[in-house]
Structure formats: C-alpha cells, structure tokens
Design a protein around this nucleic acid. Structure first.
Lengths: 133, 133, 133, 133
DNA sequence: GTGGTCTAGACCACA
DNA sequence: GTGGTCTAGACCACG
C-alpha cells in the first residue's frame, strides 16, 4: 500500500494520511487484516514526525478503520462504522450536496457530475462483504 | 436569500457563510446581480463577528462568486471560476473520489451514492446559462 | 465546574480530564452550552501540558460531548452519542459485566452492587432531555 | 474453563486473559482449587506470546485470584482480595460511578442501567461462600 | 521491536 | 484571545 502526502497542501498532514488509508481500503489496494507500516516506519518514509502518524492512526481507529494493538502494530479492520443509520444518511446527503454545489460553481453540468461519480465508484471494491453495525 | 449558520458545527463560521452563498446561487434562491447584505448587516443577522463576514466575502470574491464594489456593496457575479479546464476537472475528480471513499466507509453501496448525488443535483438550477472562463 | 486529576494515577492524564468532564455533565455541575476552560487555562490550572488538554478535548469531541470552535472555545454539546443502538447496547452490557465481575472479586454481594449502582444513579441528572441519534 | 480473547480488541491481551479468568471464576465455570493451564499450554491455545500469559498470571496472583506454586502450576484461589474494607468500598463506588456516567452519555436511562446490572448479576454464582480477608 | 503518553515549544488559522 | 497543527524528543507499556 502506497501512501503519498503533499506537504504543500493546505490539508493537514495527518488528514492526508487518514484519507490515503481509507482510499487504499476502498480501492482494494489494502485489505482488512493487513498491517499498516509502524508509526516510526511510516514517519520516516513520509519524512514527517511520528506524532503526526500517531494522530492519523488515532483518527482511523476512532473511525473504525483500523485497530491499534500495543506492541503488535496497527491493523486494518473490517468493522465498518458504528454510527447510527440516521447519522450516516445525514453525512452522505451532506457530502453529496457539497460536491454538487462545488461542481456547479466550477461550471460543470449534471451529466459531468454523474459521470465523475460513476468513475469514482468504479474504482471502489464494493463486493467485499462488510459488517453493518 | 436566507443564510443559516450553525454555531455548533466544527466547520469554521466564515466557511459556512461561503458555502451558504454558493448553495443559494446553485439552488436558485439568489441570482447573479443580486446584492448581498452589507458586512455589518449580515454580521448582526447571524450574530457573528464582522471580521468573519469580511473574510467570507473575500473568499467568495477570490472564487469568482461575488464582486465587491467600493461603497456600493457586494454583488453576486456570473463570472464563474477562472480556473483552467484541467484544474477544474482535477477538482471534480477529487471531490467525487473523496465522497465515494467516505460513503464506502459509511457502508453505503453504489446505488445509494448515485441516488444521493441525483437528489442533490435535483436541487440545483443548472438551466441558468453561465459564462465559462 | 471543577476538574481534578491525580498525576500519580495509572490512568492517563487526558483520560482523567475526559472522565471529569463527562462526570460534570452527568452530575449536572455543567450544562450543555457551557464553555469549558480554554486549553491554556486548564493546562495551567492542572499543571499539565496544553497538548494533553487538547487531546482530552479531541476525545470529548469525538464522543459527541463537546464542540470545539477555533477562535471561540470548547463548548459542552447536547448531541448525545452517534453510535448505532446495537453498539450502545453492547457497550452497556460490557460495562455492567465488568463491574459485576470486579465487584465479585472484591467480595461484594449482589445487594451491595445494586445499592452502589442505585446511589451512583441518584447523582446523575437524567431528567435533562437529550437528543437520541 | 474456556478462555477466549479477541486479538482485534484494543484491550491489552494480558488484561483480556486476566478478565477471562476472573469472569470464569465469577460465573462458576471454574472453581477455587482448579489448576490453570500451564503458561506454555495456554500461550499455544490462544496463539499468543508466553510472556503475555506470564504477565497475566502475575497480575492474577497479585490480585489474590490465583496462587502459583513452583513446579506444580497455577491454581485458582479462594483467598479473595486482601484490600482493606474501605479501599474495596471506594473501588466499588468508583466502578459504579464510571459505569453510570458512561451509560448516561450513551443515552441510557436509570432503568436500562439497573436492568443491565441485574442481568450481569444473574450470570454470577454468588452462593459460593468466599472468605473475606 | 511495537504503540501510548507526555512534555516543550513553535507557528498558523479563526473570531 | 481562542483552538489547530506540527516538530522534537523523552519515557513507559505491551508482545
């Protein structure tokens, strides 16, 4: 699993790491059970501070994406989100609304948006069965 | 044009204002040429600091959404984004990828995502012809 | 709202802060909407590093107990937990099982346990209406 | 006596073993005088490091739950905790307070908590007479 | 070796 | 002023 970050991006480094891991899982590049690089290792690779990696892993754990085990490492989980259904729905609607609004202001048309979403969906491995909470 | 902000949201206030204006324009609640409330007026309405409104208007101007004219006020523009076509494309792809990745981790399936996007698109008035930069 | 921590306890400092805030809310000593001490202020009061307070506030925010607003402060929320019902149930059962097992090994009898729980419940302000997710 | 541990849980493995033994004793699945599996045996069974089992047995001995006899093995004890009465009381109160506070923040009501505790108590064999220290 | 916690101190973003 | 992020480096706990 390759993780890339851009130190010039306004997006916080730890969030870039979080997204990269989530994207790898969604894309199928990494699978539940896989072990992520150790904190020190990834920090060295990305040339960032170990604490920043720790923070990213903490966020991922709270999102139910990884499990950290002291002394053992950080592993991709297959737990899925523990949020209530209503909260999930709310988040999805919000995500969609924001994307559509931004796309509108970029001058795109409905077909463009639908096509972009369809392409993004094609990159994701949905067939993997995942536990719903 | 009604602007609502949620002081309990973790999203910065000025960003909420920016998004609200963009959403109003996309939804058709406001049209190019309309005059936005003055900084002081909007600040009072939303019970936030005028500096926060100033900042929001600055961002909106930078994004080509409004034009500020000395002494006259702040007007909605139809300029559209002045980004290069390639950059726009990149942003749209990125938006879609992020939304899809988050949706995946929330446990949604492709149909759910497409449906949410379609619904969000229905709320937007795309028929308004807008000049492409 | 008074927060006390014990630097000699094996419980991490930030967790002590987290629990203290949750307990204050449960006890009614603090109410939703109240502003917590600023990061620097609380750090000074407790004679710990500001980062440790930041961490506690982060955890509280993820648990839906507080909302942090940049530039404004950290406020007690009335959101309640966003977890799915099943996950909540699981956590409650687990909490009860652990308490009972420990109580058993301390030599207490069922009546003692029930009494202790009843007393703890008396200290909590359940009448406050809270939103269920 | 069956011991199960969950390698995906954030709880340290040795603590899971400690709790499992305590729970078995409380539940009646195991009785004072029973011999626990040898360190190597249990380590193999659970597929964990022998050091981890050693550590768990050490903690159990410190808590007065088992007695380790050189060359003979590790036996469940009926000694009970050797803490002073006041200290025990304090621990019980603390346990109850923590459980109740967490339950409050999960959105449960007093009846739910009492019911969960009652159910947990039903699983424990309190009739076994145990010597108080 | 792994992750977990804490300190110290810097600099940026928001209201 | 507030919180948000990041670095550097220490020491502890777990396997």
């Amino acid at each position: 699993m390759l993780i890339h970050i851009d130190s010039r991006s306004p997006e916080p480094l730890f969030e870039q790491v979080v997204f990269a891991v989530k994207a790898a899982l969604a894309k199928g590049t990494a699978k539940p059970g896989d072990r992520l690089p150790s904190v020190r290792e990834l920090a060295r690779e990305l040339a960032i501070n170990p604490n920043t990696v720790v923070r990213a892993y903490e966020v991922l754990e709270r999102d139910g994406v990884v499990v950290r085990r002291q002394g053992a490492g950080c592993f991709l989980s297959d737990r899925g989100s523990d949020l209530a259904q209503g909260e999930k729905r709310r988040q999805l609607t919000d995500l969609a609304k924001r994307m559509v609004t931004e796309a509108y202001h970029l001058g795109f048309r409905p077909e463009d948006v639908k096509k972009a979403v369809a392409e993004a969906l094609d990159d994701v491995q949905f067939e993997t069965k995942r536990r719903q909470s």
